[in-house]
């Protein structure tokens, strides 16, 4: 990248985030190793990977909280390593740090206005409260809210300056399933408004559900990128036919000539499907006692993609 004046602001370029050969080392420890990716205006981009993969380090470099040790990164055309550019970036990005909590004894509305006052222009707090569906709680102190509601306040706070790009670092970690769904709803609304969202997560289903583009990062390196469908088609493996609750007895009842079946923990039988095999297999199963079992065809997920690429699965805790 050149040292010319800041690149043109959003509107003249579709690249909201440009990362080229970015690295970050702490002594001998390489947290981020020569990664490159782009984020285009209006996209929801998911940076997916287990804990310690380098997601937060990368996002904090883009937020001007950490300095890279190699490569370049530009946000909205501005160089994250240049002090004068950092001031411009800070005005135009929205950030929800991982594990963020607002100020305990301020109300929802006061918190939004508190963080809004840090910017020259701020959105109307009531409109943001409406966006995150917290109208009933707007005069409630932050400390009295549940985890899911707190995270929605964080989302509102991250949008308070009407940012050109929003960085959400693990926005649903630690939330119960319903609260996660609520947060997803808010992110979907942002997507509907055409906001550019940079999301880091270790939840495969979250990335699959929300993201237009996913980059999978593991041990500091990006190991795959693409739309969720592209990643699944390329790295997810075959579809699987599942016969529910069939158990060991079901294995014995399978007709001869089927692909190699596998018995899973819950007693389900899993049969990998090649293209065009489904009808034949179903017809042969109809001749066995298994015909009255619950049968479904399961498409591979990003979980399978990660498993196939790394040989491991990511736990619920992100490890």
């Amino acid at each position: 990248m050149s040292d010319n004046p800041p690149a043109p602001p959003l509107g003249q370029s579709d690249k909201v985030v440009q990362v080229d050969n970015l690295s970050k080392k702490y002594g001998d420890n390489v947290a981020v190793n020569d990664i490159s990716f782009n984020l285009t205006k209006g996209e929801v981009f998911a940076f997916l990977g287990p804990n310690g993969a380098g997601k937060t380090t990368t996002v904090e470099i883009l937020e001007c909280l950490r300095n890279p040790t190699g490569g370049q990164a530009r946000v909205l055309g501005y160089d994250v390593s240049k002090r004068s550019d950092q001031a411009e970036i800070r005005k135009r990005i929205g950030v929800l740090p991982q594990d963020f909590n607002a100020i305990d004894r301020l109300t929802v509305r006061e918190n939004i206005n508190y963080f809004g006052a840090m910017f020259k222009h701020q959105l109307d707090a009531d409109k943001l409260i409406e966006l995150v569906d917290l109208k009933d709680k707007r005069d409630e102190q932050f400390k009295k809210l549940s985890g899911g509601l707190k995270q929605r306040v964080g989302l509102a706070v991250s949008l308070v300056n009407d940012p050109d790009v929003v960085f959400l670092d693990e926005p649903t970690t630690g939330l119960d399933p319903r609260a996660r769904r609520d947060v997803w709803g808010v992110i979907e609304r942002l997507k509907g408004q055409g906001k550019t969202v940079f999301l880091t997560t270790h939840y495969m289903d979250e990335a699959e559900y929300l993201a237009d583009i996913v980059s999978i990062i593991d041990r500091g390196q990006i190991i795959a990128s693409g739309t969720p469908d592209q990643l699944i088609d390329t790295h997810g493996g075959k579809k699987t036919l599942i016969i529910r609750d069939a158990g060991q007895e079901g294995i014995r009842q399978l007709p001869l000539g089927l692909p190699k079946a596998e018995l899973r923990n819950a007693g389900d039988i899993a049969i990998p499907l090649n293209n065009g095999e489904l009808t034949n297999i179903l017809m042969s199963l109809a001749q066995t006692p298994l015909h009255d079992k619950e049968i479904e065809v399961r498409r591979p997920t990003l979980d399978d993609v990660f498993l196939n690429l790394t040989g491991r699965r990511v736990s619920e805790e992100g490890n």
Binding site: E63, C64, L65, A87, R90, K91, I93, V95, L96, P97, Q98, D99, F100, N101, A102, I103, D104, F115, M118, F119, K120, V157, N161
Partner: peptide, 13 residues
Amino acid sequence: ELKIIKKLATTPL
């Protein structure tokens, strides 16, 4: 601990 300082550091403050 609450990441409020981190959040503020990403604003023009």
